[in-house]
Nucleic acid binder design. Structure first.
Length: 286
DNA sequence: CTTTCTGTTAGAAA
DNA sequence: ATTTCTAACAGAAA
């Protein structure tokens, strides 16, 4: 479900709500989502506090101690939602942006933070995971991620270099590959290619210098804009307070098949490319 | 009713 | 080695 802007929005929400609150207890209702043994998972976390929540690509990193990190990947439908029971008891819904009540049938882990405060890990499709790792393992995992929009390694030089290394790869797959460029998913790949006027079926090596530069800039721009408005809620995505993202109304092609292109009015087409639904304007994209 | 689709990605197959 | 397909799962939409 969530791509870089959505995970970043969750990260920011968590940093505003759960930092330095002691984990009193953890209810684990779906053990398979935890990659450590349950005993170890509880042993390490209960009594600790989260010092900071960081992120690499779509992976959340809870900093627990010098050599202890809790990784959380939301995959398609994972949610991390903070709820304070106190506000609820004072009347009104605890989260002004949400009507959802928690826990629900998809709340598979519940972190008790004391004072009526809880953090829920919800996951309809149960593809996500939680895993405690040490620093060495964390670095190993982070090393597999490609350049990331919004960070220092996202430079034109580096972008040109990865394009040159994957000349024959179809752009859609190229942009979805987290080891090449991290953070993009199906929505933002389609949007970036649309605004760059490039068909998703083109190969990395087929781009002109001008096209490549345009794509490079548009990716950074679209990701930044999406973060600003709290990401995109197409179906299940919710932020750390249960709220929805507002980039949804700004989508130009994703989910707009058969609707007129915002730029030229041609009907947006949807095809399947490498197993992924792919949206594009047959007139604007060459 | 059945079939197809869904924001991810590890691992298998090609 | 590199690229494409499939499975993990539940539910909505066609």
């Amino acid at each position: 479900m969530p791509e870089l802007p959505e995970v970043e929005t969750v990260r920011r929400g968590l940093n505003k709500t759960i930092l330095n609150k002691k984990i009193r207890e953890i209810k684990i209702l779906k053990p398979k989502l935890v990659r450590n043994s349950l005993a170890e998972f509880r042993e390490i976390l209960v009594g600790e506090t989260v010092k900071n929540v960081a992120r690499t690509g779509k992976l959340l990193i809870f900093e627990i101690a010098e050599n202890t990190f809790l990784l959380v990947h939301l995959k398609m439908t994972g949610q991390l939602i903070f709820q304070s029971q106190n506000e609820k008891m004072m009347g009104g819904h605890p989260n002004p942006n949400s009507n959802d009540e928690f826990p629900n049938k998809y709340s598979h882990l519940i972190f008790d933070l004391g004072d009526g405060e809880q953090l829920f890990y919800n996951d309809l499709r149960q593809f996500g995971y939680l895993e405690i790792v040490d620093k060495a393992r964390l670095l190993e995992i982070q090393a597999k991620y490609g350049i990331e929009p919004g960070t220092a390694n996202y430079t034109w030089e580096n972008f040109r270099e990865i394009l040159a290394k994957k000349k024959k790869t179809v752009l859609k797959s190229f942009l979805l590959n987290q080891q090449i460029i991290s953070g993009l998913g199906n929505i933002y790949v389609d949007e970036s290619l649309f605004w760059s006027g490039i068909l998703p079926t083109r190969t990395a090596g087929s781009l002109t210098e001008a096209e490549a530069k345009k794509l490079f800039k548009n990716i950074a721009k679209i990701i930044a804009e999406a973060i600003e408005v709290g990401g995109t809620t197409f179906r299940n995505y919710r932020d750390a307070l249960g709220g929805k993202g507002n980039f949804t109304d700004k989508l130009a092609v994703y989910g707009r098949e058969k609707l007129p292109c915002l730029v030229c009015g041609t009907k947006i087409e949807k095809t399947k490319l490498n197993g992924r639904g792919t949206h594009f304007c047959p007139h604007c994209q060459k």
